[in-house]
Simulated scan of single mutants.
Amino acid sequence: MQNDESKPDLADLFLRASRVIRGRWRESLIPMGITPHQSRVLSLLGHAEAEGLRNSQLAERLHIAARSTTEVVDQLEAKQLVVRTPDPADRRATLIALSPSGRAQLGKMSQLRRDSMAGYFEKLSAPDRDELARLLEILDRENPRSPRHGCK
């Protein structure tokens, strides 16, 4: 029987696994010419209304400064993955939305994510993967940034 001192530190194990997952994701994006920050913006826009989001909304959802969001959007616009249009509700603001090529890129990224993570999680049996998903969903219930709480 393990005492508290000999038990693995769950937070440390979780952080190490998270680092591996983020690293694999970052590496898999390189051939697409997309950074993890850019992929996050594309993902948020993919879940947004068709007309898009304001820069301030993107910044709020990413928990970063609006000027940082502007830089990422500029990069994505240069790659023709997003378009900016005037906001009909406020002529001082613009809306950012996926372009058709951005939507196609998002589809490719989704498949890429599944493929790149399959190798990592295949070490677990199917019942173990199901159990891990169940446990992570329990932990995610307390996450105010979770899609379950209305954030996307």
Rank of each mutant, 00 (worst) to 15 (best):
W25V: 06
W25I: 00
W25L: 10
W25Q: 09
S28W: 06
P31C: 13
P31T: 12
P31H: 12
G33R: 12
I34G: 01
T35G: 13
S39G: 14
R40W: 03
R40F: 08
L44P: 06
H47V: 00
E49W: 05
A50G: 00
E51V: 05
G52F: 06
A59N: 07
A59V: 00
R67Q: 14
S68T: 10
T69V: 14
T69Q: 07
V73P: 13
D74F: 13
K79Q: 15
V83H: 09
V83W: 03
V83S: 08
R84L: 12
T85Q: 05
T85D: 08
T85W: 07
T85M: 05
P86F: 01
D87Y: 03
P88V: 08
D90R: 07
A93T: 02
I96S: 05
A97P: 00
L98Y: 09
L98D: 08
S99G: 03
P100W: 03
P100Y: 05
S101I: 01
G102A: 09
R103W: 08
Q105H: 11
G107N: 14
K108V: 00
M109V: 13
M109W: 04
S110K: 14
M117S: 09
A118K: 13
G119W: 07
Y120Q: 11
E122S: 15
K123S: 06
L124V: 05
S125M: 02
P127T: 03
D128H: 08
